[in-house]
Nucleic acid binder design. Structure first.
Lengths: 202, 202
DNA sequence: CGCTGTGAATTGCTTCACAGCC
DNA sequence: GGCTGTGAAGCAATTCACAGCG
């Protein structure tokens, strides 16, 4: 069965919410509460959960630990995944140090920048390299995810390098859209557009 | 007529793309090229543009300058808007210095943090204040947009302060969902979820 | 021709309604 | 009684198909 794209996104959010509830030692959660937490309706939550075949056994809602377990299974979120950041400007270095990634299952194992000077100045526990070494490092370390935070003019080139090095997914923070082979999972966070989308609704 | 939410988002992207094309002095653009640039279909682009009543006059596509002009009008993207950042950790300071915001119509006019030490250490041309001054500064300066980059536990409190101070929209980068009065335009960028949404499709 | 503009067809998503269960 | 699970209904969004136009 094919899972709709919207459903996958919501299930990821549900997974995150279950993580929060689990840490608070909450045992059960209703579709209604999940709906509020992720901003949708209880019907949709129930349909989504049933869609992936998780039949969250019933009583006073879903059992937090087991639902999270099963979602992790289905969504492939159980194993820690390796990621890298390309472009160590303000945004890139901020992401490099975003502690939450690690606890949420993503290990940022490398950073890359074209400027050697910048690389020397950065003080972080994560290894930083020149872009020239990108393809080697990414493939050697089996990095699965590339995060792009370079200026517009280099975004496509970096994406191509990441793909050649074998990443499976790319998250693009640069201000331009890029093209990647369709077997690469790609998504983009456009900061300006996020603000515009808000302002357009004023 | 009521414009669907998806359409608004896409029109904002089209606006951004027209901006890029305009700088390259490109005069005309087809629905097909716009579709590729923003990741949708030509049908949808045409529907979207027609939906807001802009009847982009035809020949070899849409006239870049005039379509952008009209979109700016309809989407309220013509005036520079004032915004502030709350939470000057790594991410917050990165956003504070994100030069593109200004040229894209958003003036970051203030930054806030709860730590006085941090405020003293930050060197930027933008005024930084203690969170205690948030409500005063935001209402005095008529700041319309609040960007939240504080840790989870303070996100809701900051949102409440921003709303009391009179912002019209909030963009939340913190790792938790927050609740705001429904006349406030709200959206959230969840970095972890962005990565999870990619990994779930591997 | 090539490209827009748009009713009609279609697809897909969400909501409803209610049976089933503890 | 409260909450899940799910076929059916309803709604919204996308896609199609083709007329219109320079």
């Amino acid at each position: 069965m094919n899972i709709p794209s919207n459903t996958i996104d919501r299930l990821c959010k549900i997974f995150g919410q279950l993580d929060i509830l689990g840490k608070k030692s909450i045992e059960f959660v209703s579709s209604k509460d999940l709906a509020i937490a992720i901003g949708t309706t209880e019907y949709t939550v129930r349909k989504d959960i049933s869609l992936i075949g998780v039949t969250g056994f019933t009583r006073k809602g879903y059992e937090v630990v087991s639902l999270k377990e099963q979602l992790g299974e289905k969504l492939n979120l159980k194993t820690q995944r390796k990621a890298c950041i390309v472009g160590l400007g303000r945004l890139g270095t901020a992401l490099l140090d975003y502690e939450k990634f690690k606890q949420d299952g993503f290990d940022i194992v490398a950073g890359f920048d074209s400027s050697i000077n910048k690389i020397e100045r950065i003080h972080t526990s994560i290894d930083v390299f020149s872009v020239a070494e990108l393809e080697n490092v990414v493939s050697q370390c089996n990095i699965e995810l590339g995060i792009i935070a370079v200026p517009s003019e280099h975004a496509q080139d970096i994406a191509d390098k990441l793909v050649r090095a074998g990443v499976k997914g790319i998250l693009n923070f640069s201000p331009v859209e890029i093209n990647v082979n369709e077997n690469i999972i790609y998504s983009r966070i456009d900061l300006t557009n996020a603000l515009r989308s808000i302002a357009a609704r004023f």
